[in-house]
């Protein structure tokens, strides 16, 4: 049946065994890509004409911001899969994605603030993009707080999934409204135009780092999901087997 793979993918045991084999490769790939990308970006890419060396923080800032947003959608989509097909694995992925996404959002905000000091002359500017990221952080925190507050795991799973979905519907509206608000209150500081034509000498190292971040994200997400699965399925035979046999 065509649904067989979907069904198999949803099996916690199958997921645990398969991903166990992927983990080392993901770790290796992210380590290599991140090291190569960082050395390339920090050491060999040319200086920016306007911003000098300070622009180099984009090698952390941009991938973190990318993944923070993508991570929210991943969380919402797995929550939706969980709600619709009642798949336990999807809920575990959703729960694992929340703290990782929150940390990435925080990193994006933090590096953005550091970058803001030499660029705008202030650590915090109520720029449209920064404000949207801040609200994204609140959305993440909301999901995490709800999952902590609801005692029963199954109820918490579904409640968080619904909240994540509601957030997903809201993200574009929030982004658009914040953007509109920003153009209304545009402060007298330099508005950083997004590097529309980034030079290849900067773009390739950035791309390397972004792919490296994606690999690292996948590795973290898988590891966290596997831990969650073990804890949730502790009463099943396969977990007992895994625990007694070591691997």
């Amino acid at each position: 049946m065509a649904w067989q793979w979907f069904h198999r993918l949803g099996s916690p045991r199958w997921f645990y065994q398969k991903t166990g084999a992927w983990l080392p490769w993901l770790a290796l790939a992210s380590a290599v890509l991140l090291i190569v990308g960082s050395i390339w970006g920090l050491g060999f890419a040319p200086e920016d004409a306007k911003q000098g060396n300070s622009y180099r923080i984009i090698f952390v800032h941009v991938p973190a911001a990318f993944l923070a947003l993508a991570g929210y959608y991943l969380m919402a989509v797995s929550g939706a899969i969980g709600l619709i097909w009642k798949m336990k694995l999807a809920f575990a992925v959703m729960r694992a994605a929340a703290p990782i996404g929150a940390v990435l959002t925080f990193i994006a905000l933090f590096t953005g603030a550091i970058w803001g000091k030499p660029t705008w002359g202030a650590y915090w500017v109520w720029d449209a993009r920064i404000t949207s990221m801040l609200i994204l952080l609140f959305l993440y925190i909301g999901v995490m707080a709800l999952s902590q507050a609801v005692n029963r795991e199954q109820v918490a799973d579904r409640a968080c999934a619904l909240l994540a979905l509601v957030g997903t519907v809201n993200i574009p509206i929030i982004y658009k409204s914040v953007d509109w608000w920003f153009t209304l209150h545009q402060p007298a500081t330099l508005r950083l135009t997004e590097a529309s034509s980034i030079d290849p000498s900067m773009f390739y190292p950035l791309l390397t780092v972004i792919i490296g971040f994606y690999c690292m994200y996948a590795w973290t997400l898988l590891t966290h999901t596997r831990t969650l699965l073990l804890r949730r399925e502790i009463r099943t035979k396969w977990v007992q087997q895994v625990l007694t046999e070591g691997k």
């Binding site: 069904h7 949803g10 099996s11 009642k86 199954q154 799973d157 099943t236 035979k237």
Partner: peptide, 13 residues
């Protein structure tokens, strides 16, 4: 039986 056997239905909560 304290432990739940691993079955296909186990996928879905």
């Amino acid at each position: 039986e304290p432990l739940v056997a691993m079955e296909a239905e186990h996928v879905f909560s």
